[in-house]
């Protein structure tokens, strides 16, 4: 399936979405840019530390509300720039959690339980201060009424047992999109390197879109099943997408592009420059291949991963 078709079929205005990856690695950027090009808006986004993709969706005006743990992009943006602007100017509804809390929420969704407990966050403002207003929660009937709840540990007997736990409500997105190194034609997924929370996010969603660097016959995926993380029957669409995480990295395939991310950082700070960025690099191309052409073969070659490191050793990242 083409990316344009996968996005238009599953990602609808106002739908609840989560994307895979972490800060500057393995974000499904080809899908993100396609969502922006199709001008799909009012999205409700669930994120842990999904970085670049989240910032671009917010910057392009696709996001109405976000539940998030971390809006940063490593060295290239200690705080994601469009995320920061959107919050400081009251453009989006937002709710803060921690990374583990968001992971548990996806996991609960994947497991089909209404919540999971943790002791993380006791005594903090993550418990005390709620971003979504009660009116917003009441009107959004798919959201729980409470951000989270604290409960006495019902099994407590010894002094050292935790007295309390924080209950985190499950998340079940309409769609999760992940980008991976390798998938079979039927959808079996193999992720190389860190999986982040991709597996939990994928299993929690009603629909799953997978884009991949390498698309192989399903039989080939059965040769080393220990390397696979997701079975084919979870997957609604498989898109073969060369450099599909660009400008973020894809371990073993290519590095993040420091030049592009630095350019983004500079242009994102100014509204007019950001509009020109979107015009040239997102709306100005028809698909991800054209973005790659615009960046140029030379630069893509420069960030190509080497063996055995899996990144572009010696790449100029200043």
């Amino acid at each position: 399936m083409s990316m344009a078709e996968a996005i238009s079929r599953f990602v609808k205005p106002g739908c609840h979405l989560s994307i895979g990856g972490f800060t500057l690695n393995r974000n499904p950027m080809a899908a993100v840019y396609e969502i922006i090009r199709q001008r799909i808006d009012n999205l409700h986004l669930y994120a842990h530390s999904n970085g670049q993709g989240v910032d671009e969706l917010i910057g392009a005006g696709c996001v109405r509300a976000i539940e998030i743990a971390y809006g940063g992009n490593g060295r290239f943006a200690p705080t994601c720039i469009r995320f920061r602007k959107a919050i400081e100017t009251g453009q989006i509804h937002f709710e803060d959690y921690s990374n583990y809390q968001m992971t548990l929420r996806f996991m609960a969704g994947a497991m089909g339980v209404p919540f999971l407990p943790t002791t993380s966050g006791l005594g903090t403002d993550i418990l005390q201060k709620w971003g979504f207003s009660p009116e917003f929660r009441e009107a959004e009937t798919r959201l729980p009424r409470e951000k989270l709840l604290v409960m006495d540990n019902p099994f407590r007997r010894q002094d050292e047992d935790p007295p309390k736990v924080v209950l985190l409500p499950a998340v079940n997105p309409d769609v999760t999109i992940i980008h991976v190194q390798k998938a079979g034609r039927e959808g079996t997924v193999s992720i190389n390197g860190l999986t982040f929370a991709d597996v939990e996010q994928a299993k929690a969603a009603r629909h799953l879109i997978v884009s991949c660097e390498e698309l192989v016959e399903e039989d080939e995926m059965r040769l080393e099943p220990g390397e696979n993380q997701l079975p084919f029957f979870l997957v609604d669409a498989v898109v073969h997408q060369f450099y599909g995480a660009y400008p973020t990295a894809c371990y073993g395939c290519y590095d993040y592009d420091p030049q592009f991310l630095k350019m983004y950082q500079r242009l994102a700070k100014d509204d007019a420059l950001y509009a020109s960025y979107l015009g040239e690099y997102v709306y100005g191309v028809d698909n991800h291949q054209q973005l790659c052409d615009l960046v140029g073969r030379e630069q893509l070659q420069r960030i190509r991963a080497v063996n055995p490191q899996g990144y572009a050793a010696g790449l100029d990242r200043r």
Binding site: T23, N73, G74, N99, L194, F196, A197, P308
Partner: peptide, 25 residues
């Protein structure tokens, strides 16, 4: 090489294992 983020591919090389957030926390 020094990673520029905790998700930098540089953290994934020659590890004891590459897991995910759920395991790490």
């Amino acid at each position: 090489e020094i990673p520029l983020a905790v998700a930098d591919s540089r953290v994934m090389y020659h590890t004891a294992l590459n897991g995910g957030l759920a395991d790490a926390f």
